[in-house]
Design a protein around this nucleic acid. Structure first.
Length: 478
RNA sequence: GGCCCCAUCGUCUAGUGGUUAGGACAUCAGGUUUUCAUCCUGAAAGCAGGAGUUCGAUUCUCCUUGGGGUCACCA
């Protein structure tokens, strides 16, 4: 066993969906592992029974898979350091919590939630730092025993030193320093026997031989608690790498109140996994040159912690959309057809007719930014058209009627026809009827496509085919 | 409020003790297109402020300001 091996983990709490911030964290962990021949581990931090969401873990795993972030150890794939669900490791945490109590590094606290709540309110009122006041910190053995015998419930708290400093070196931020007096006697083991994040992540990261803890910046302030635990347990702590936060447009921490944050939602809308990954990779990280389009394979090669930025990054959905368009445009036709298929199916559009489907995909591939837009751009070739009053007026006017009649005549007379014939017909009918520009194109586009703006008339007719074109034109004749 | 983190165009960012401060999204203008979209070309847009170090600071230091995170028997 090589103890120097790079081992990192993504340790989400299964809340129901994968947050894009979580995805970014997962990606950076994944890339760091891959670029260093290391291991990437998925660990489920499900120690909060009150927040249990059925199916959340399954969904998380499936989303990670869809995104292509395969892990080496974790749920379903297993590994030497399992189990990878914290809820299945409670015995382990308890053992270490007890050890800490025995050695005086932690203590039992019998304070009720009510007392704690009051305490907090008071401290808030007096504008003091909200912290545990240490009521149970120095209970005598006898007092503890009495309460235990009385069956009082308790939690286990860390006995953080009241003086001194805790210093650590963050891989992206450098030296970070805290006064121990600012650090709270954090609860390590809850009264229900489950550990808090702080205990669980320290114990697991050590037992799972994690070399680098790569996580969001919101964790910086709890680092001293973790360092206290590592040293109290006699362990060396892993390297800490705190990633800059992903931000809302107003610069606050990215939240669902200001737009979609679930990766699943972007997938549903038809964003491509590689495009999402590429975009998210560029939030807080940048390659050494002006390049912005990176395949995941390329990222696995060039990724480096050294190029991580310190400042938070606004999650700009406009740019994501642009990037997705770039990926769509360079996707091959066979892949594109395959990827778009479920979106047509969901819209109840029958795409059995291969040639027509291919033409639709070809068309949308040039215009759409998401897979959902493929359907929006081409559904009118399949579904009945609906017209607004304004559109009806245009369809009814004399000029339009003349065009329709001319076209119906021409198409009916013509036995065989092709794209060239249609192109000619467009020119020919314009000249013959002396109707040009908007009057001409809008009439046809509305009648055949249902919109004033859109693809060229020749393309529309080509996709519809002669029958359907005729049918739609006839429908507009008074 | 205490503590911690951060600061280059509106946004994502590159960059250096001496640069015309570079790229991308968005915006605007022009071209292509019957239109829209795509695509191409161009423009506008930035080193938060103040001291200090230095021959010279966007870059190094300090302060101010601004923004953010965190202060749970949630992670």
């Amino acid at each position: 066993m090589n103890f120097d091996k790079i081992r990192v983990r993504f340790a989400p709490s299964p809340t129901g969906y994968l947050h894009v911030g979580g995805l970014r964290t997962a990606l950076f962990n994944y890339l760091f592992a891959r670029s260093n021949n290391g291991d990437f581990i998925l660990r489920i931090e499900d120690t909060d029974r009150n927040r249990f969401v059925p199916g959340a873990t399954e969904n998380l795993v499936s989303t990670l898979q869809k995104m292509g972030l395969n892990y080496d150890e974790g749920p379903e794939v297993g590994g030497k350091f399992g189990p990878y669900f914290q809820s299945q490791r409670t015995e382990i945490y308890k053992q270490y919590a007890d050890k800490l109590v025995e050695e005086g590094k932690a203590y039992r606290c019998f304070c009720s939630s009510e007392r704690l709540e009051n305490l907090r309110e008071q401290q808030l009122e007096n504008k003091k730092t909200v912290m545990y006041d240490g009521k149970c910190r120095n209970l005598s053995e006898q007092e503890v025993q009495e309460k235990l015998d009385a069956g009082e419930s308790y939690v286990i708290r860390a006995r953080i030193p009241k003086s001194g400093k805790t210093v650590y070196f963050d891989k992206v931020r450098g030296k970070v320093e805290f006064d121990n007096s600012e650090v709270d006697d954090q609860i390590l083991l809850k009264s229900d026997g489950y550990p808090t994040y702080h205990l669980a992540n320290v114990v697991d990261d050590h037992l799972m031989k994690i070399s680098h803890v790569i996580r969001g910046e919101e964790w910086i302030s709890s680092v001293p608690k973790h360092i206290f635990l590592y040293s109290s347990l006699g362990w060396k702590h892993p390297k800490f790498v705190h990633l800059p936060l992903l931000l809302n447009p107003d610069k606050s921490k990215l939240s669902k109140r200001q737009g979609d944050v679930a990766v699943e939602r972007y997938l549903e809308k038809g964003y491509l996994p590689d495009a999402i990954l590429n975009f998210v990779a560029l939030l807080g990280w940048h390659g050494p040159d002006d390049k912005e389009i990176y395949s995941i394979k390329k990222l696995e090669k060039v990724f480096s912690l050294k190029r991580i930025k310190k400042a938070g990054a606004v999650f700009d959905r406009e740019k994501l959309k642009w990037m997705n368009g770039q990926y769509i445009r360079k996707t091959s036709m066979p892949d594109m057809k395959r990827l778009a298929k479920p979106f047509y199916q969901k819209a109840n559009i029958d795409i059995q007719e291969e040639e027509k489907y291919e033409k639709c995909i070809q068309l949308a591939k040039k215009r759409a930014s998401t897979l959902q837009e493929f359907v929006a751009e081409t559904q009118m070739f399949y579904l009945p058209l609906k017209f607004s009053d304004e559109q009806k007026e245009i369809l009814q006017n004399d000029k339009s009627q003349k065009i329709f009649k001319y076209w119906i005549q021409a198409l009916t007379d013509k036995k065989s026809w092709d794209l060239n014939y249609v192109k000619n017909l467009i020119k020919e009918s314009q000249a013959a009827l002396d109707i040009k520009g908007k009057d001409f194109y809008w009439a046809l586009r509305i009648a055949l496509y249902g919109e004033t703006h859109g693809p060229g008339i020749d393309t529309i007719v080509d996709i519809l085919g002669k029958e359907k074109t005729l049918e739609r034109l006839m429908k507009q004749i008074n």
